[in-house]
Amino acid sequence: MIKDVEEKFVYPSETKQLTRDWVLMTVCKRWRAYKSRLKKKYFKRKERSLQEIISDVPIGVNKHQREILVGMWCQDSHMKLCEKNSECVKQQKNPHTTGRKSHVRLQKEMEIKRKAPVHKIDLWDEAHKKKDGNYTSENVKTIMELQQTKSKEGCGNVHLPHEHVITKNVHVENNLAVQQGGPEPSLRLHQVTDQDKVEVMLYSTNLRNKDKLVAKGTLESKEKTYVVGGNMLGVQYVAVRVRGCTYLGDEKLVRPYEKFQTVRDAMGSVIAWPRSHVKIVKPTPPAQSQSIGR
């Protein structure tokens, strides 16, 4: 397959391996989709006999390979797996239409198209719409209608499905960590409010400077959907506004963007930094006034 492609197309030698991986991935995806279309159109087990299905060979399909494929579809293990998958799909109250595309990728595409940040409500709305503009289920439609009603009344946003579960787990983990004598609640997924902003220290991601301080700043957000430089944080990063640098301030950003290439370049601006290399500065209690003895 690779040989056939390289005989017809020319691509830079620097990206040879990446291009080959992309070709194989694309071919596999197209092959799965093709087999799915064949099965949907010709494999009607309840309407036709097995012999009729095997003898009805589509144009362009090898007869011998067709028999092997139909034989695999007729296996009890394969049919049980298909039935189980069908049941699981029916149990989904809020099915999405993004397939294997992650919500992070979808949000990035929406931001490029709109040339503006995308709210999580708009992202959820887009991920649960069909090509014809209709929602995937009545439950999804009800949720979005409720959201529109609340927006008009100025009552804020409706809670999306599973959002309350994430919030609940965050509080449970925080409380458990404190009860077990661990550190203060670590950097979690909820949005940081102005009152919740705290001072943090950024440590080097370079192995040569392990555990060495690079900069200090204030925590802007821990929410995984927060966007910095056009990319969402995800679960591994937090957003920090850089307030000051040490002699290691020239360390390169993990996620450079625009004109910011190093930590020093981003003084006064917000950057994404690995959650594992950020520590909260615990506020020191005010010193008690002491009288000077004679």
Rank of each mutant, 00 (worst) to 15 (best):
K80C: 00
L24A: 11
L69N: 01
E67M: 07
P58I: 05
D76G: 02
V89E: 08
K63E: 15
L69P: 05
Q75C: 12
S86R: 08
K44M: 03
V61Q: 04
K35I: 04
I53N: 03
W31A: 12
L38Y: 09
K44T: 04
R45C: 01
L24F: 07
R32T: 11
R45E: 05
R32K: 15
M25Q: 14
V23N: 06
W73P: 06
L69G: 01
F43D: 00
E83Y: 08
L50E: 07
V23F: 15
Q75N: 04
Q75V: 07
K80S: 03
I68V: 13
K46T: 11
F43V: 11
H78W: 15
L81N: 13
V57A: 04
C74H: 13
W73A: 10
L50P: 00
C74N: 14
N85R: 11
G71C: 12
R48L: 05
C88S: 10
S86W: 02
M79L: 11
S55K: 14
V61P: 01
V61N: 03
I59S: 00
L69D: 01
L81C: 14
E47G: 07
C28G: 09
D56N: 11
E47Y: 12
C88G: 01
W73G: 07
K29E: 08
E52G: 07
V70N: 06
K41V: 07
L69V: 13
R66H: 15
K80N: 01
Y42L: 09
S86A: 07
Q75Y: 05
K84W: 03
Q51W: 04
